[in-house]
Design a protein around this nucleic acid. Structure first.
Lengths: 346, 346
DNA sequence: CTGTTAGCGCTTTCAG
DNA sequence: CTGAAAGCGCTAACAG
C-alpha cells in the first residue's frame, strides 16, 4: 500500500515550507500569488487532501459536526419501516452543506431520557471533538444537553426548536404555518375547521395550536374551542381525536392535524364513518413525511433539510470565528397540495 | 471550557505510565489484574474516552468505517420523499454495529458514473483514513472503486453484490428468494406467474430472474418465457411491463416484480384495467421499502440492516487482525405477507 | 511574506 | 509485566 501523500510531500514538490502549504490550503493571507499557484499545482499533481485527524491534532478545529438524535425515537422509526425520513432529510441538508466546506457530519444516537445522557454526550465529544453539535427534537429542548454544551462552550444548534436559550435556534414558523393552513381552508369555503394538537412535550405543538387559534379568531366565523381535540402525535391519538370531532353536534368540514400520522388516522377514521374525502371532509397535515405522499395528504412541509443546512452553516461559520451570526433563524415552510383538500360539499 | 481529560490524566490518577493505560483500554495482555482494575477505576472516575483523532495519528487504526453511496441515486431518493429507506437501514445496521465496537461510520456520497470517482474516493480516504469501506450498489460492482481499494490494500465490503471479486461480498440469496416467492404463489394455487425483471446494471437482477426460472421450471406447469417482462426498476418500466403481461393471450394471475416500485406500478396498472387485487391478480415485490407497506404489497424483505451490520463486523474484525473471515456471506431474506396476494379466483 | 520550532494525544518500538 | 522515547500529520506561535 503506497504511503499516503502528506503536507511534506507537497512542500517538497513546491519547494516551500510546510507552513506555506498549510497557509495555502487554509486560505490564509501572506502568501504571494506566485507561490500560492505553485503550491496549488503541487496539491493537484499529488492529489493531496489533508488528514482530518492531523488537522484536529495540530490545530483547534476538527472539521467535524456531530448530529445528535434521540436513540429510541430514531431506531423505532427505522424499525417501523414507515419511511419517517427525518434522518434522511437531515443528512441531505446537513451533510451536503458540510461537504461544501470540507466538513463531515457524524451521526450519533443518544437516549434523551436516560440518566446517562450527560456521560453519553461527554463521551461522544471526547471521542470526536466536534466543532459543533446539531440537536434535533427532543434533544433540542433538553436542558441536560443544552446546559452541558453551553458549559463546554461548544457551539450548537437546536433544530425545530423555538424555545429561548443558548445555541443557534433554527425553526420554521409553526404558528404562521398553522395560520396559513387555516386560511387555505377558509379560502376553500370551510367554516368549521377542527384542530388536532401534538404532544405537549414539544414546544412546537403549542405554536401550531396558537397559529390555528389566531387564524380562526381572525376569521369571520370566530374561534370555537370545542373544535380543538388533543393528540400526542400517535396514530391512536389521531383516531380518538377525530372521533371526538365527528361526534360534535355540528361536525367540522375540515381538520388540521399536527402531524402526518394523526392526519392519516383522521382520514381513515372519517372514511370508516362513511365520509368521503375531500367532499365531506378536508384534511391538512403537518410535516410532509413520505406518509403524506402515500396517503395523498395535503401538507405543510417541514423544511428539515433546509433547517439542518442552516444549522451546519451557522456552526461552521461560528467555528471559523465569524461573529454576529443570527441567534435564531426562521426557515420558510412549504405547502404541498394533494387530494385530501377541496371545497366543502355544503 | 475545561480542558479535556487525556490519557495522561488517567495515568497520573492511577499512578501508572501512559503505556499501561493504553494497554488497558486496548485490552492488550501483560497488565496485572490489580493494575488493570486501578486503571479502569481511574478511567471511570475521570470519564475518560480516548480521542479518535489521536488514536489514528499514533497508531494504525482510525476506528472509522466509510460507507460509500452513490450520490445521484441517494440524493434523488431523498428529494423524491418516497421514503426509500436504504440509507436508514444501512445506518441502523452499520452504525449500531460500529457503536458496539467503539467505531463510527461516516457516510460519503460519490458519483459512480463520474470520471473523477477515483479522485473522489482517494480524497475521502486521505481525509478520513478509514479502517474499512462499505460499498453499496451500484458501487459494489464498480471496478473503478473495487480496483482502487484492492490496490490500496484497504479492506472493503460489497453490500448486495454477488459478483466474484475482492472484498467481503455480503448479500441475500436473491435467486432463492425469487424461488421462494414463486413457490408461495404456486402454493396459493397460481399457475401462470409473471415476472418483471430489474435493470441489467445490477447483478442481482439476473439472480432474481434465475430463481424465478428455476422455480417455474421445477413446477408442474413449467417455465414459459413469454411471462418474463423486462423492467429497469423504474415506475414507468413497471407499467409497461405489466401492460405487456396483461396483453398476453392467457394473462398471468400473479406477478413477481423485481422491486417495490415496479410492483406498485403493476398493482395500479392492473387496477386501472379493472382487475381487483388479489382476486384477479396477486403481486409480490422485492425489497420491502416503506412503499411496500403503504401499498399493502406482499414482499420479499431485503435485509439491508443485517447486511450492513455483517459488513461492519467483517471490516472491524479484519482490521483487528482476524483472519479466515468468510469472503462471502449470505444473509437470510425475510417475507412480509400483506394484502396483495391471495388464491386466484379461477 | 516565509520558515522554524513546538507540541496536540495517542500507539509503536524498544528497554528494562 | 512495565516504562521511556519517538513519531504520526498537521497548525499555532514565533522568528526572521
Amino acid at each position: 500500500m503506497r504511503r499516503a501523500v502528506t503536507i511534506k510531500h507537497v512542500a517538497a514538490e513546491a519547494g516551500v515550507s510546510l507552513q506555506t502549504v498549510s497557509r495555502v490550503i487554509n486560505n490564509e493571507p501572506n502568501v504571494r500569488p506566485v507561490v500560492q499557484e505553485r503550491v496549488r499545482a503541487a496539491v493537484a499533481k499529488l492529489g493531496y487532501v489533508p488528514s482530518l485527524a492531523a488537522r484536529r491534532m495540530g490545530g483547534s478545529r476538527s472539521y467535524l459536526l456531530m448530529a445528535l438524535n434521540d436513540r429510541d425515537r430514531t431506531i423505532e422509526g427505522w424499525k417501523s419501516g414507515e419511511g419517517t425520513d427525518w434522518v434522511d432529510q437531515m443528512l441531505m441538508g446537513g451533510m451536503l452543506k458540510c461537504e461544501s466546506h470540507g466538513y463531515r457530519m457524524i451521526f450519533e444516537l443518544v437516549d434523551t431520557h436516560s440518566d446517562h445522557v450527560d456521560a453519553a454526550v461527554r463521551g461522544a465529544i471526547a471521542a470526536l471533538h466536534p466543532d459543533g453539535v446539531i440537536l434535533t427534537p427532543p434533544h433540542s429542548e433538553n436542558p441536560a444537553i443544552t446546559g452541558l454544551l453551553s458549559g463546554l462552550g461548544l457551539p450548537f444548534a437546536r433544530i425545530a426548536s423555538i424555545a429561548e436559550g443558548d445555541g443557534f435556534a433554527i425553526a420554521m414558523d409553526d404558528a404562521e404555518a398553522a395560520a396559513f393552513a387555516v386560511d387555505h381552508l377558509l379560502g376553500l369555503g370551510h367554516r368549521r375547521i377542527g384542530f388536532i394538537t401534538g404532544s405537549a412535550e414539544y414546544a412546537l405543538s403549542g405554536a401550531r395550536l396558537d397559529g390555528y387559534r389566531r387564524a380562526m379568531a381572525a376569521s369571520p366565523h370566530g374561534l370555537d374551542e370545542s373544535l380543538v381535540a388533543r393528540g400526542d402525535f400517535s396514530y391512536e391519538s389521531g383516531v380518538a381525536a377525530m372521533e371526538s370531532l365527528l361526534a360534535l353536534p355540528e361536525r367540522p368540514t375540515a381538520v388540521l392535524a399536527s402531524n402526518d400520522r394523526m392526519a392519516h388516522a383522521a382520514l381513515r377514521t372519517a372514511k370508516r364513518q362513511g365520509l368521503s374525502v375531500p367532499a365531506d371532509l378536508s384534511v391538512i397535515s403537518f410535516d410532509n413525511t413520505p406518509l403524506a405522499r402515500f396517503a395523498d395528504l395535503t401538507a405543510i412541509i417541514q423544511p428539515i433539510a433546509e433547517m439542518s443546512a442552516v444549522a451546519a452553516e451557522c456552526l461552521i461559520r461560528a467555528t471559523a470565528g465569524e461573529t454576529d451570526l443570527p441567534q435564531r433563524s426562521l426557515v420558510p415552510f412549504g405547502f404541498a397540495e394533494r387530494g385530501s383538500t377541496g371545497a366543502p360539499k355544503i
